[in-house]
Write a protein that binds this DNA or RNA. Structure first.
Lengths: 227, 227
DNA sequence: CCAAAAGTGTTACGACTACACCCATGA
DNA sequence: TCATGGGTGTAGTCGTAACACTTTTGG
């Protein structure tokens, strides 16, 4: 029965985003094998026999970043299955995943030998396969999610200031936001952030109160992204 | 190389939604084969060698509804790949698609022998495989899309009244909307609907002006869904 | 005329914007 | 005391909700 049908190989590719020095970065690897040997590509890997694709993506995420998977945000973006997307084997399809991570110490800590590095998303072009398109779609999805959900906190560490959270929005959206209004918005939003009681001084200026991520997932009313 | 990796069978399953007598309906088929023989299920089919999954979904949509695929809205929902989702073959994964159709004359016109019927989404439970979950996710996606995009027009025919469009929102969201405010909202929104100049009388009351779908895809500001 | 659905006007309220202003800290 | 980032106050504007009201048809 099942053998009557086409069987294909399935991969999970990861768009791992983070903020580094106020700019949105994506984790890229250099391909060690054909096809596209030497090109930059999104990290990813093949689905294994006993796991779901979500588990494949979570496993790859740990391999690439070395971080506890429960700490990071991970969600599906979509399936890419054009017959010619892999020049060698027309029957490899991939499911893209969006991962959101805080600024991690070193990305090369994975068990994989491929050289991994953070690249500003604007510079990430000319990737292998259809990864340019996947990256665009994932970044767009991240921009939307920041509006309607509380995932922005996934870009921050366990404790963060409102200024840091604002920098997340500014980096992902590529615009400047009004400080006073942003402050009110996130403190008023129910379940977005909770004060820890601590303070942190950035060297300059008045120390900022520290917050942790709240329990809410959706944001009503949403953060409004200027047009 | 590719043969070193797991190969799986891939299907595209369709959540085809429409409005019938003011209620949101989904197209279900009765399974003719094991597993889940005799159970209600979402229509779907296997990916073929030379097509993308999006093409698989479009082909199945035509087979089920007999309608020109360009006329209907079709988009990905997500991949469902739990290892035990198919009790016979652990390596069948599916990509769910959301299709939005106007009220179609007869759904049974497909080339397939399976009995197809429209079922109110609230009554569509106990489906085969993980189709209950897929249906829930697809309906939720449709509800979101109605807020931020102009897809609601895909539920209507080529010409429709504002009252019909309002019934779409009411059926999908399951709530009542204020007629005057809805009217202003959709006529003010740029590119949502365009007047055709015609009028249609429903027998009772003043005849309504007719509109066709406009060119805009996204809706700013969005239709606000009460909470 | 009456019922019913389409469509317009109006007012109150809430959210967002812009920007003035105060607070707390390091140099 | 000055510079810097954190945080509060406030007035104008825009979009929405609620609902009274007018318009246009069929019976």
């Amino acid at each position: 029965m099942a053998s009557r049908h086409l069987r294909v190989t399935v991969t999970a590719d990861l768009v791992i985003l983070t903020i580094r020095s106020g700019e949105l970065h994506v984790l890229l690897v250099e391909r060690a094998n054909e096809p596209f040997r030497g090109s930059a590509a999104l990290p990813g890997g093949f689905m294994r026999g006993s796991e779901s694709l979500d588990e494949t993506a979570a496993r790859e995420l740990v391999e690439e970043t070395g971080v506890d998977p429960g700490a990071l945000h991970l969600e599906q973006v979509g399936v890419y299955s054009a017959p010619d997307r892999d020049p060698r084997d027309p029957r490899v399809i991939t499911c893209a995943y969006l991962a959101i991570a805080p600024d991690l110490p070193v990305p090369t800590a994975g068990g994989d030998a491929r050289a991994a590095r953070w690249v500003p998303v604007e510079d990430a072009v000319g990737l292998a396969f259809d990864h340019d398109e996947i990256l665009r779609d994932a970044v767009e999805q991240a921009r939307d999610k920041l509006q309607h959900t509380t995932v922005a906190t996934a870009f921050c560490g366990p404790e963060f200031t409102i200024g840091e959270l604002r920098e997340v929005y500014q980096a992902v959206w590529g615009i400047a936001l009004d400080k006073p209004n942003f402050h009110r918005k996130v403190t008023d939003a129910d379940g977005f952030i909770e004060p820890t009681g601590g303070k942190r001084s950035s060297g300059n200026g008045r120390p900022a109160a520290l917050y942790r991520a709240g329990k809410a997932e959706s944001l009503v009313p949403p953060m409004s992204r200027p047009r």
